[in-house]
């Protein structure tokens, strides 16, 4: 029972979504299920917040190492909720000027928008910036000319890298026009357009087939492992 109900929900919703893509009269059905998903996701959000609060409160309660951070998390969590729900500093929506709290919580000038713009965005950008460092470190470790494949990959990468910089233009600019295809910048474009695209599409076709087969398995109720392994 515990497994049958979710399985059937998945099967029915899945088929509805599939049908609505091809059969116009079932379109609304697809939309309905889409809405249902959003509602469920929204309710689940309460569980998510609950989990967050519980884990951090427990940490504080047990005085686990680093519990101070949990306190900071909880404080920030509370502030953001209060600020967001209370719409502090949010200007009135000019369309519904008469109604209190009619402004959007994200509206420019509100406290929530301030948190977003002056706390979240810079922090996010910092994290994102780390990526540059990681790309370098990963490339440094992974690109070792160990075997034939690696050498091929390495040289291709080298061409692309040079072709995308001025160095490429400078290095191979002397090539006559009839051999312009061999100029690094052109070579890199060619590699990206032909080899890369072809390879990428092969992967995409495989993925597409994989997605359809996976979906079909779920729709036919053959694959129930998403509900937990075992029977």
């Amino acid at each position: 029972m515990r497994r049958m109900v979710p399985m059937w929900i998945a099967i029915i919703a899945g088929f509805a979504m599939l049908l609505s893509a091809f059969f116009p009269m079932t379109e609304s059905l697809g939309e309905t299920f889409g809405d249902v998903f959003n509602v469920v996701a929204a309710i689940a959000f309460i569980l998510g917040a609950g989990s967050l609060a519980k884990v951090n409160l427990a940490k504080v309660s047990r005085r686990d190492p680093g519990w101070g951070f949990a306190v900071v998390t909880l404080i920030c969590f509370t502030i953001t909720i209060v600020v967001g729900l209370g719409k502090f500093g949010v200007p009135q929506n000019p369309q519904f000027a008469a109604l209190p709290w009619s402004g959007e919580k994200e509206a420019e000038g509100g406290a929530f928008a301030w948190i977003y713009a002056y706390a979240l965005v810079p922090i996010t950008a910092t994290m994102f910036a780390l990526l540059a460092f990681y790309v370098a470190s990963a490339a440094f470790r992974a690109f070792r000319a160990k075997n034939l494949e690696a050498i091929l990959l390495l040289s291709t990468a080298f061409i692309i890298l040079l072709g995308r910089t001025f160095a490429g233009v400078v290095l191979t600019g002397w090539l006559p026009d009839w051999a312009s295809g061999l100029r690094l910048e052109n070579l890199s474009v060619y590699i990206m357009q032909v080899f890369n695209t072809a390879g990428n599409r092969a992967i995409i076709i495989g993925i597409a087939l994989g997605v359809s087969a996976t979906s079909l398995r779920i729709l036919l109720g053959i694959d129930r492992s998403w509900m937990g392994s075992g029977d």
Binding site: A142, A145, E149, L153, L154
Partner: peptide, 9 residues
């Protein structure tokens, strides 16, 4: 396992 691009295959 320490991987490099050569092991991708």
């Amino acid at each position: 396992q320490q991987r490099t691009v050569g092991d991708a295959f």
